[in-house]
Simulated scan of single mutants.
Amino acid sequence: MSMTDTIHAKLTQQFAPLHLEVIDESQLHHGHAGWREGGETHFRVRIATRNFDGMSRVAQHRAVMQALDDELKASVHALAIEVLPPGSI
């Protein structure tokens, strides 16, 4: 399973999102810290979920980071998180 698929599966299981995009942006970071041949090191997540209702932006980001803790410790170097309001989808 690719890292994109792993991230998508974990966030879907944890947050039951109304909208979820997992974008591998590794190619944009060629030669930068953490980049590896083959990519799957730098990701952007766009997520909309009711699970974040009432949470601060910091708490939302922490929840995503916690859900992906193993991946961030093992192989994902960077993760950009965009939380979208559920009504915007």
Rank of each mutant, 00 (worst) to 15 (best):
P17T: 03
V45W: 03
V45H: 03
G31K: 00
R36Y: 00
R44K: 13
P17E: 00
W35L: 00
I47C: 06
W35H: 07
S88M: 04
A80F: 11
A67S: 14
T41P: 05
R44S: 09
A16L: 05
A80N: 10
H19L: 13
M55D: 09
H42C: 07
D5P: 09
T49C: 06
I81H: 08
V76K: 05
A80R: 10
M65N: 15
R46I: 10
L28M: 15
T49W: 02
G34H: 02
S56H: 00
R44E: 11
Q60H: 01
G39R: 07
L68W: 07
D5Y: 13
S88I: 04
A33S: 12
T12Y: 02
F52H: 02
V64W: 06
V58C: 03
T4F: 11
D69S: 13
I23P: 08
L18K: 12
E37T: 11
H42A: 09
D69V: 08
V58T: 04
M65H: 12
L72D: 04
T41C: 11
I81V: 09
E82H: 14
A59Y: 05
A48V: 02
L68T: 07
E21F: 12
F52P: 03
H61G: 12
F52A: 03
M1H: 11
N51E: 15
P86R: 00
V83E: 01
A63C: 02
V64Y: 01
L72P: 01
E40W: 02
I23W: 05
L28A: 15
R36I: 01
Q13S: 13
K10H: 06
I47K: 05
Q13H: 09
V83Q: 05
H77Q: 04
